Simulated assay, not measured.
Amino acid sequence: MSRMGRPTVRLELTEDERETLVRWSRRASSSQALALRSRIVLACAEPEATDGSVAAAMQVSRPTVARWRKRFAARRLQGLCDEPRPGRPPSITIDRIEDVVITTLEQTPENATHWSRASMAKHSGLSKTTIGRIWNRFDLKPHVADTFKISNDPLFFDKVVDVVGLYLDPPVGAIVLCVDEKSQIQALDRSAPVLPMMPGMPERRTHDYVRHGVTTLFAAFDTATGEVITAIHRRHRTTEFRKFLNRIDREVPDDLDVHLICDNYQTHKTPEIKRWLEKHPRFHIHYTPTYSSWLNQVERWFAYLTGQLLQRGVHKNLQALERDLRNWVDTWNAEPKPFVWTKTAEEILGKLGRLCERISRSGH
């Protein structure tokens, strides 16, 4: 029996409408809601497009696609804008708001790298409070800057697929260990005693400190159980890394293959390490792509260690620091917590592709 329902509204766009929709969908100053609506309408205008196919492509629900298809058919471009709300009409026109948003995104003030509320208020003639509300409405934070780094590894695709495959579908009869070293861990002592927290007053410490040397923590994080094999050495050369591999070899049962996930630090690739791996055929090493330490789960574990022990720790000598490191690891291993990896290689590569597309559209 064929399904009965309302017929789909067909959309035919004029050249001006298509040009405007494309501009709205790509322009950085458009709100994300308007950009999504524009992409939905453009997709609906394609031959043989259905609500279901557009919803799948846009990753939205079918009712959402149907709503904007009908709104556009009834009111054209104006139908994609938000409905006016009851109450006193706004005292600032849409054009002035758009000017603030576009200026924030596409220009910089004189003698400054980014806008402040004061400089934008002076430039636009609006109050600093109004500028703050506009930026908050469009989630604009000119004072915040983040960083990113795109790997230039020619084998990036293959390495991502390899490492993520070990996380999501580990081999039978094997253990997967994320291996790295946290070097230059400093034993820091404050120049005055730390003042403890009191009601209405946070813990207080001096901004200066005294260094008492550095040490290195080698760690192998078991992705299945969350347990960690560790070793502490004062240096982090090939010799120390080989000693750590020997420790892993002793602690992992002989009947298991060992898959090691490492970064591209030169110590992990020296001829001595390669000879060691040849003599231990149950060990298989997998390298993460260049500039992709986020792919190694032990880095997340190091972040826990830093936040819970090192960031606010006070140590008067290296021995005290190393003792605290061992105690912290023992406590972790008493109740280990594996990390749940959910992203597939396809999702990671797709997100990277979208980032590269944004970079190419930025014109830089």
Rank of each mutant, 00 (worst) to 15 (best):
E98P: 01
V163C: 07
E251N: 03
A28Q: 14
P336A: 08
H236I: 09
T306G: 14
R71A: 15
F244K: 01
V194N: 11
R37F: 09
T129Q: 07
R71T: 06
V194F: 02
S292M: 09
V258D: 01
L325S: 01
G132S: 01
D139F: 02
S360E: 15
L21R: 01
T290D: 11
D255I: 03
P271S: 12
S119W: 00
L256A: 01
V100Y: 06
D189Q: 14
W328N: 08
R133Q: 08
E299D: 08
Q319E: 13
F138I: 06
G173F: 04
F72T: 10
E227G: 06
R250M: 07
R326H: 08
A174Y: 05
A73P: 11
K128R: 13
I185H: 00
I97S: 04
Q297M: 14
I92Y: 01
E322W: 02
A231M: 14
Q59L: 13
D263S: 07
A66M: 10
A28C: 06
H268Y: 12
A45G: 15
S30I: 10
Q311Y: 05
I229S: 12
A220L: 08
R250C: 03
T108K: 14
L318Q: 03
N317F: 00
L34T: 13
D95K: 07
A220C: 10
W341A: 01
I273E: 09
K279W: 02
E19N: 08
D208L: 13
C178R: 00
G125P: 05
R300D: 06
R234P: 04
I40F: 05
